[in-house]
């Protein structure tokens, strides 16, 4: 399997000097599904934001798709960001209908209306939102909101999917449903990295890797 993420000697401090990540080493293979588990303020969100090129790295090396993100030009940075589907923590959709949300993203990435509708419908079908296309997002259940976030993340067919706390605020039953959905998306060929405080519903299944992060350090792989 080819490598999709390689992190070496990664350090990161907040604006006020607090160490958020310390000496992180991480390798993720293409097609892998990985859970980054740790308590609040363990540095999971920062690590994901760094991998998603949303914040610039300070020390250490991050290679995503073989590209050192610290050395990317602005233009190349945007290009790489388009190949990464990112669901941020506490995702809130646009005040539009479900389908319009996905179309908005695809249109702003340069797709024409017909193409955007086609891709959007395919993504929404993949996450099980076909029956709620015209529903305003304000009326969505928490699980459906996460489904929409996932559809937004996968609609432009990225190579890597980064999900920050997708289980947050969900009922246990919904967590299990979402977990099944993630497995389904992963089986569709995506590399998936999920940051969560846990607990994971059926994380003992083979084929998925779990990394424990604690106070900015990798505690256990």
């Amino acid at each position: 399997m080819s490598l999709i993420i390689q992190v070496s000697e990664l350090h990161f401090s907040s604006d006020d000097g607090i160490k958020v990540l310390e000496d992180i080493h991480l390798r993720v293979d293409r097609g892998e599904m990985l859970f980054l588990v740790g308590p609040a303020a363990a540095g999971k969100s920062v690590l994901l934001a760094l991998l998603a090129t949303q914040i610039p790295p300070q020390n250490g090396q991050i290679l995503v798709h073989g590209r050192n993100i610290a050395r990317l030009s602005r233009k190349k940075g945007f290009e790489l960001r388009r190949r990464i589907g990112f669901l941020p923590q506490g995702f809130t959709p646009l005040s539009k209908t479900v389908l319009e949300n996905v179309i908005f993203k695809l249109r702003t990435l340069g797709d024409f209306q017909e193409q955007a509708e086609e891709k959007g419908l395919a993504a929404l079908e993949q996450v099980g939102l076909t029956a709620k296309l015209t529903l305003p997002t304000a009326e969505l259940e928490p699980l459906d909101r996460v489904r929409l976030g996932l559809a937004l993340a996968i609609c432009n067919e990225p190579l890597l999917l980064l999900l920050d706390e997708p289980f947050e605020g969900l009922e246990p039953g919904d967590r299990t449903t979402l977990y099944s959905l993630l497995k389904q998306i992963h089986s569709g060929g995506f590399t998936v990295l999920v940051a969560t405080r846990g607990p994971l519903p059926t994380v003992t299944e083979p084929g998925y890797r779990v990394i424990q992060l604690f106070e900015g350090r990798v505690k256990e792989q």
């Binding site: 290009e79 388009r82 646009l94």
Partner: peptide, 13 residues
């Protein structure tokens, strides 16, 4: 603002 944040997030220059 939500639209701008989404565009930033998804790599729209």
């Amino acid at each position: 603002g939500k639209e701008i944040r989404l565009m930033h997030l998804s790599g729209t220059p």
